[in-house]
């Protein structure tokens, strides 16, 4: 062996490779996270600055019905968006995986997804306006016009639209790895199609199904932009509350508490996911 391993040289190499990136993470990820945690125990001063006294009062405020309601709405958006994505995305993943032109279909799936996020949300605003396309179509059948925007429905629709590929891709990966012999075996044993699917196919796609659900659920409940643009103040999610505390009412301490709460909730759902999937699951997410 040559000079490779004196302790000094090893330390030097670690410093060169890990040093800059590690320092960056400490400075711009760890430190801000700690600052948010710290701020969440402080109080809003008369002019919106952070002051003492210390305490848990911001967390106590979270229990106020107003804020619980926003949290419930976020959960509802997250759960419903995940369910709808599953209904739309699960069969689609099968279709793509078994299609001879699957590269092209994947490309077509990703194309709208790679245009700007705001444009995707804006597109729905255009469609759902009172004098927009949907109402024009309804009008042709003598219906409406309906007030489709702003509404919870609009927020949900745009959320699904925005995050659908996050669901399809992991399921697709699972389907690609699928062992179809199991299905044939089930048929050979005389199982009916539904039963054969439930026992031979569905369990094999669990990893993709779970990963897709987490990937839709977390951003869906954490976003504020969709509710901001398509809810116009009538649909208030936890992300909107956070933005309001920092951007309008200047209660940074409470905004920080909301952030810690949201972060905690996300980590909890990831923990549950990891319990279901094992450590590997987390890596699959990325």
């Amino acid at each position: 062996m040559n000079e490779a391993s004196t302790p000094w040289q090893r330390a030097f190499r670690v410093l060169v490779t890990v040093g800059p990136g590690g320092l960056w993470l400490l400075l711009f990820v760890l430190l801000p996270t700690l600052l948010v945690l710290l701020a969440s125990f402080l109080t809003r001063g008369p002019y919106g600055e952070l002051t003492g006294p210390w305490g848990f009062h911001n967390y106590a405020k979270l229990l106020h019905p107003v804020y619980l309601e926003a949290f419930a709405q976020s959960l509802l958006v997250g759960v419903l968006a995940t369910l709808i994505s599953a209904l739309l995305g699960y069969p689609l993943a099968f279709y793509i995986a078994r299609h001879p032109q699957r590269d092209l279909l994947l490309f077509l799936l990703l194309l709208p997804f790679l245009t700007n996020f705001l444009i995707r949300v804006y597109a729905w605003l255009v469609l759902l306006q009172r004098e927009g396309l949907v109402n024009a179509l309804l009008g042709a059948f003598g219906l409406g016009p309906l007030i489709l925007y702003p509404s919870f429905f609009a927020v949900l629709l745009a959320t699904v639209y925005t995050f659908l590929p996050f669901f399809v891709l992991p399921v697709y990966a699972s389907v690609e790895r699928l062992d179809w012999q199991l299905l044939e075996a089930a048929y050979d044993l005389g199982a009916r199609p539904v039963k054969a699917f439930l026992h031979a196919v569905l369990p094999q796609t669990y990893p993709g199904l779970f990963a897709g659900s987490v990937l839709v659920f977390i951003p869906a409940m954490g976003t504020f932009v969709v509710a901001d643009l398509l809810g116009a103040g009538r649909v208030v999610l936890i992300g909107n509350l956070i933005q309001q505390q920092f951007g309008i009412t200047r209660d940074w301490a409470f905004g920080a508490a909301l952030s810690v709460f949201l972060m905690g909730f996300v980590l909890l759902s990831l923990y549950l996911y990891a319990r279901l999937q094992g450590e590997r699951g987390l890596k699959d997410l990325v």
Binding site: V66, Y67, E69, A70, G233, V236, L241, Q244, I248, T249
Partner: peptide
């Protein structure tokens, strides 16, 4: 601050 409080609640609900 009284107005801030009212507004926060109106906007949040």
């Amino acid at each position: 601050a009284l107005y801030d409080q009212v507004w926060t609640e109106v906007k949040a609900r």
